[in-house]
Design a protein around this nucleic acid. Sequence first.
DNA 1: AGGAAACTTGCGCGTTTGCGCAAGAACTGA
DNA 2: TCAGTTCTTGCGCAAACGCGCAAGTTTCCT
Lengths: 104, 104
Amino acid sequence: MAVAASPTEAQRDRSAVVARALADPKRLFVLENLADGGERSVGDLSRCVGCQVPNMSQHLAVLRAAGIVTSRRQGSTVLYRIADRSVLDLVGALQRVAGDRVAG
Amino acid sequence: MAVAASPTEAQRDRSAVVARALADPKRLFVLENLADGGERSVGDLSRCVGCQVPNMSQHLAVLRAAGIVTSRRQGSTVLYRIADRSVLDLVGALQRVAGDRVAG
DNA sequence: AGGAAACTTGCGCGTTTGCGCAAGAACTGA
DNA sequence: TCAGTTCTTGCGCAAACGCGCAAGTTTCCT
């Protein structure tokens, strides 16, 4: 069941939204930072990735709109995390097709 | 090894190119048509997807540049096919994250 | 209430993307 | 060689994207 038999147009649109959300190196970097299952704040991620906070907020909004990450408030900070385990499979599959080789 | 430990920037860029290539419903439709492992011509795919031939040629060029499909000439027609089995895993993982449900 | 910290939203700018159309290139068959 | 088929490439346009900056919102602390 690698590929669904016959997705509808709406299903393809949703897949396209998800793929589009992954189509940016900074957003992929974010997902790597969240891949351990932990939560990280916007400022933390923006520092890590090396972009301004508003920019990071936009990127995270894209990821959230695609259902790739979820967020929750804790005090004045907002913590983001991977929405589902299947996201890790997706990122892994992406890296494999892209020709990445896991060290070892 | 769902996610590579620490991809380089270049690896992330390549992943982004692949993801971008998947970020279009028409191109996803093409991959569904090729998912059975068969080969299809440009005109065939353009008819299936419902777009003009030049447009389809562009889409296929994007997929080929990302290493997702390969092509070969046979007479006057050019046949496209999935480049690697891992592509099917990727598309499947994408559909799963996008919320697609395989019938059953 | 006032101020600071963390995040989101709005706006303008340059770049990229997908499309339609026309023209070019590669191959076939008469 | 000449016409026909198939695919690719170039061009112009409208829409979307990523970015930087300023302003707004939410929360916390005193």
